[in-house]
Design a protein around this nucleic acid. Sequence first.
DNA 1: TTGCTAATGGAACAGGAGTCCCGTTTGTCG
DNA 2: CGACAAACGGGACTCCTGTTCCATTAGCAA
Lengths: 206, 206
Amino acid sequence: MEQESRLSGSQRPGGRTARVRAAVLEATQDELVERGFHGLAMDQVAARAGVGKTTVYRRWGGPAGLVADLMDSLATESAPHADTGTIEGDLLENARNVLGAITDARLGATFQAVIAAATCDEEASRALHGFYTRRIEEWARVVDLAVERGELPAGTDGGEVIRAVSAPLYYRLVVTREEVTGDVAARVAGQVLAAARAGAFVRART
Amino acid sequence: MEQESRLSGSQRPGGRTARVRAAVLEATQDELVERGFHGLAMDQVAARAGVGKTTVYRRWGGPAGLVADLMDSLATESAPHADTGTIEGDLLENARNVLGAITDARLGATFQAVIAAATCDEEASRALHGFYTRRIEEWARVVDLAVERGELPAGTDGGEVIRAVSAPLYYRLVVTREEVTGDVAARVAGQVLAAARAGAFVRART
DNA sequence: TTGCTAATGGAACAGGAGTCCCGTTTGTCG
DNA sequence: CGACAAACGGGACTCCTGTTCCATTAGCAA
């Protein structure tokens, strides 16, 4: 249960190792869609990926390690921030981006699985934290650009703005378990925009 | 796996049944704090509660049923909305209330466990949905009162406002896995207040 | 108090997840 | 091309979760 950096630090990152990882992560996502995190059996994943059960246990340790690595792999392919020209458009784009991720069967199941895993596993928790830290940083730039354009007050905290847009969508998905629609996404973007324009997201003076 | 209404509809709700339920739910919470949802073993719960393993399986069916019932029991003891006299104070109070719930070791672990359970179990999902539906309705009243006092524009959607305050806190807890502090709670309450005053939460005309 | 029945408890049983051992395959380097 | 080492694969084994059966206890009502 303590094999680190299975990604980059491999001593032999040759063809097979990478192939196995790809096949296993692919199979993991499929299983998550069909059975959810609690139903994620290493057995099944190994069989579906066409690799030995031993290999999966050796490299990932358990279901949590599996979803943590899956999250890491998703991090490398996450989309860059939008640039529609206005902060209104960019925030709406961010909301739609989140909406798309959580309504997509494959991605949605994956995110929920990692969230579930993170509640009881330190490794999955770190993977999740890292993923969103990067994503928020990336999208926070649209706020900085808006400030430069004079659309928003100087000192507006971009990370906070992006969090404020994303949070209500995830909140509905995993906490209140309400349906998340395009309407909700649009409303939320509008609400946050209003608060940002009013200067509610300006950083406190140090 | 289909024994309904173990709460109210019992044909014999006498002393022992209620005692057993209380002991089991108590033990469940303890186990959740120590091991999390994935580590919730019916065995352990039964032993800690001092009841037979068979009883726990019979009445709750599985770990998910256990946390679902726990959620239902928490619903009955959730606090009524605040009434500080100003919407600013009430929203801050709501933020602090959420903050208190998720930072409390016992409650925080419980909520995270139910959230994890809900990602893969329909029953837990319904319990969670019901709990927050009630809670949001309850606290939405502070917004209605504020509208009556003239603090906020007519037509402001109370449920949306409460969600907007609560969401960023839960988002940090379960999604981005950032620390949630009193600072964050206060900031969020302020941001939502600004948006509400600007009329961003006014319902669309039908 | 007495009997009925719901509810509980103990113990044996079954199924599956996770671990271990060792032989086999496959990159990689000289 | 050849050898070494890392990584993989299969199968047996163990332990624990969840189920089933039946005896026992304890509410409830007459």
